[in-house]
Write a protein that binds this DNA or RNA. Structure first.
Lengths: 248, 248
DNA sequence: CGATTCCTTGAAACTTGTCAAGTTCCGTGG
DNA sequence: CCACGGAACTTGACAAGTTTCAAGGAATCG
């Protein structure tokens, strides 16, 4: 659990850095596989691609061929509905997987856009299925990943269904904090890669409400916010914002 | 491709209606499998159980061993949080699967309770993984099912994040209508198995708001509601409630 | 058939959304 | 490298939708 530096410089010059030598092993696909099994994955990931900030990795409707792992950078996924409504469904950082929704229909159901210059690993899904038939540990791990996505969504439902604006934002910040921490970054100081509007959309709030909540948290000494730069001053108090939400 | 007797040691002598003869074939696990492949499933499902109304099929925290398919009846799944907050995550009817969330942690993360006397098929997950390594079509179908769950959740996020009370309820009714229809029941007349409070919780609303919205719909001639009995009088108008929600 | 649960409806309160204005930030082009 | 212009952010005042509180009535179960 020690925050060792999983994120040390990825040597791009030797672009062969496959799963077996990837610094994200503990966070990405290979979790729980042994050395030999991870070796198989090297053949699986057949393309590393760079995605420029603002560019889409994929769009809804595009045929589904591959899953994508964020190697570096930051993404946003969102669904668009006929009537123009939009819902941000997640923000993905290094080690996280995108595209699981597309399996159901063989076409992407959401859009994925890079919020900063990013690198991704492309995992052809057919190959993943092939390989996971031969490597039970991989199969099981993949199932866990999909399941984790479902659990994550359930948490978001609770947030959207029963939390106040302050609670939502506190939850959001704590979630980011936890994820940055798990990657060896500071839990208390980080940059928001997304706009207030994107945060608001994700949390089911308007951007003004997000802005006001940030200001309120700052006034109360919970955080220090300067535009995209966030510093959490009182983790416990942030947690308390959520916990005190109900039941006197 | 797949060997003959893949799963052994399971006693099924008294199981009359296994997957190969189940009327839900098109809705449940077997989708897309051929006859021989479906035959394998008969060995997979090792227990059919009855769950009385109000009884829990499983509770959060219980060790995960099996997935469950609703054979008959109606369930509700919900998550409970430390502070007592509750969020209904879905209502499951015949042919739908429960328990996918539990794969991630080897323990159930949500509770499942029967809203009426119901029958379920228990599918030991380990066996499902075993079999799906040998039957690619089953493997792929299972992945699609998990993915579909993720897509479903995304739709719910949109609903919770950006719809008004009326839009939420209209969406809810249309979703039920579609699912009943897909099972050969009337699309326009059905019984709600859940209370107003459960509907409200699912939709992120209070029960009073649900009740008022029902009354409003009735006044406007969209539906006829008498307690749990719903009759949809104007499907198109219900659709319009949603479509007109945003951006002209 | 009685008790409990569920549902409906009204009025008031409150949170969040809407509209508007002003400021700051940041990328682009000169 | 600086200046410009658009995008992003903050803040206030007001409006709107939903919740809360309250009470009465209907349905359901044992």
């Amino acid at each position: 659990m020690a925050p060792r530096s999983v994120v040390k410089g990825v040597n791009l010059s030797q672009l062969k850095s496959a799963c077996s030598s990837c610094s994200l092993q503990e966070l990405c696909l290979p979790i729980g596989l042994n050395k030999e099994e991870i070796g198989y994955l090297d053949d699986l990931v057949y393309r590393k691609r760079q995605v420029k900030r603002g560019d889409h990795l994929y769009r809804a409707g595009m045929p589904f061929e591959s899953l994508y792992a964020v190697r570096n950078g930051f993404f946003k996924t969102y669904v668009l509905y006929e009537d123009g409504r939009e819902q941000v469904t997640g923000f993905q950082m290094m080690g996280e997987i995108m595209g699981l929704d597309a399996i159901s229909t063989d076409a992407h159901t959401c859009h994925a856009v890079a919020l900063e210059d990013s690198d991704i690993c492309e995992v052809p899904f057919e190959k993943l299925e092939d390989l996971s038939r031969k490597v039970p540990a991989l199969q099981h791990h993949f199932h866990k990943m999909m399941s984790r996505e479902i659990v994550r969504d359930q948490g978001l439902m609770l947030l959207l269904g029963s939390m106040t604006a302050d609670e939502r934002l506190a939850t959001f910040l704590l979630n980011l904090s936890q994820r940055f921490g798990a990657r060896g970054y500071s839990r208390t100081e980080f940059l928001l890669r997304m706009t207030r509007e994107e945060i608001g959309n994700y949390l089911g709030l308007k951007l003004e409400t997000v802005s006001r909540a940030f200001s309120r948290f700052q006034d109360e000494g919970l955080i220090e916010v300067q535009n995209k730069a966030i510093q959490i001053l009182d983790l416990e108090a942030l947690n308390h914002v959520i916990a005190s939400g109900r039941r006197p």
